[in-house]
Design a protein around this nucleic acid. Structure first.
Lengths: 216, 216
DNA sequence: GCATACGCCGGGCAATTTGCCCGTATTCGC
DNA sequence: GCGAATACGGGCAAATTGCCCGGCGTATGC
């Protein structure tokens, strides 16, 4: 019998999990929480074998919850169940110590499979995420970013921050032409054809900054 | 007795609705659908009094579903139940003909209240969305975005999605020059000087999410 | 029914920017 | 000292942009 702690801020979604898991004889939802703090409390009251958590929670994120639980040397296996198909999220979750990552687009069977895999101590990724991560590994992805020199990275940052070529040149005390050339080299190294793609790539790679941007 | 058609692509979430709605004596879920096409079919088989739908569906979006149902002079009231707190989504949904918009962060009671309000033919917004829309009205926030015409918005979406001017022209069957002009007008209306700022603005306003759903 | 406005479409043209080449200067490891 | 890598920037043709224009079709208002 696998004891499960459910963490998700949407009550309706929790109801969905419960309805799904309740049908399985070997699974039992022993507690629920709507945020990370409540999750800690519930876990201390009654440790679970498996914690299923969303990433986006009010207050501190699900990733922090994962890291905290791991840090506390907790025995529970952790499965992240998120709506984000972005492989970077999955990577972050796994690095933080989760064993599995399943998107909400997955079929219920896929979730159940992941639940059992993870409680057995094995990794589990939903098919879409596994594929996305694999492709990311292939595509020169973040390695391309690493191919940028320090200067190029600096200029990329300033560009994406919205500064004009002239402003950057003035700021760095170099010729606008140099900035322009650098801009061109960056785009070539990263394999993008337009500033728009460049911006999206840069934002995507700096997930933290992305949240800052998106937040306000 | 209110007959309800549930539309959401996440089986687990549907299970949640069902569990919640089943407890109410005056509500009855008579059918479910995982995408817009299935929703049409189910509706034709058995018309419902109320359609509850998510916005992000595979294939054509929930917004299109709403618009289509309205266009068909269907009697059903429509309630959109989405995870997006972005007031622009709510605005689009209401413009498309939905009577209510409730976020998934809402308490179940709030959803139930909205269900009853909407089936009575009245509008219903969850508190967070109503507040967000009100604030948006005040701050000039995305009012600039609203000043874009439909065509401009479409082109903005395609641009930010990473398509080239030529590709967009081919896609829309118009001259590259028109796309270029439109691009220029968009930047002027939004008050940005570069594609980079444009992209960041669009991402911040979740333009992509907004119509990623709608189209492509 | 008419006038006005507005959105869509695209031509035109100058000015700017880009794409891509090149050479030089400086640093760093060996 | 030497090779390699990097920072810097000139040059030039080609492409793009910025900004104007007018022609249509269709709402909107009187």
């Amino acid at each position: 019998m696998i004891a499960i702690l459910l963490v998700d801020d949407h009550a309706v979604v929790r109801a969905g999990y419960r309805a799904l898991l309740a049908k399985q004889p070997d699974l039992q939802v022993i507690a629920e929480a709507a945020d990370a703090a409540e999750a800690y409390r519930k876990y201390r009251q009654q440790p679970a074998d498996l914690v299923i958590t969303d990433i986006s929670l009010p207050g501190s994120s699900g990733l922090e919850l994962v890291a905290r639980l791991r840090q506390l040397q907790v025995d529970a296996r952790i499965l992240v169940f998120s709506m984000h198909q972005n492989p970077l999220f999955a990577e972050q979750a796994l690095r933080a110590g989760a064993l599995g990552y399943v998107t909400k687009s997955s079929q219920p069977e896929e979730l159940l499979r992941a639940v059992r895999e993870v409680s057995a101590g094995r990794h589990a990724l939903s098919a879409d995420i596994a594929q996305a991560m694999a492709l990311e590994m292939l595509g020169d992805g973040s390695s391309a970013l690493r191919s940028l020199t320090v200067r190029e990275f600096e200029i990329l940052r300033l560009l994406v921050a919205g500064h004009s070529v002239e402003a950057i040149a003035a700021n760095l005390h170099i010729s606008p032409k140099t900035v322009c050339n650098c801009h061109y080299l960056i785009k070539r190294k990263l394999g993008v054809g337009s500033d728009i793609e460049l911006t999206r790539l840069a934002i995507q790679w700096q997930v933290l900054d992305l949240l800052e941007l998106a937040g306000g």
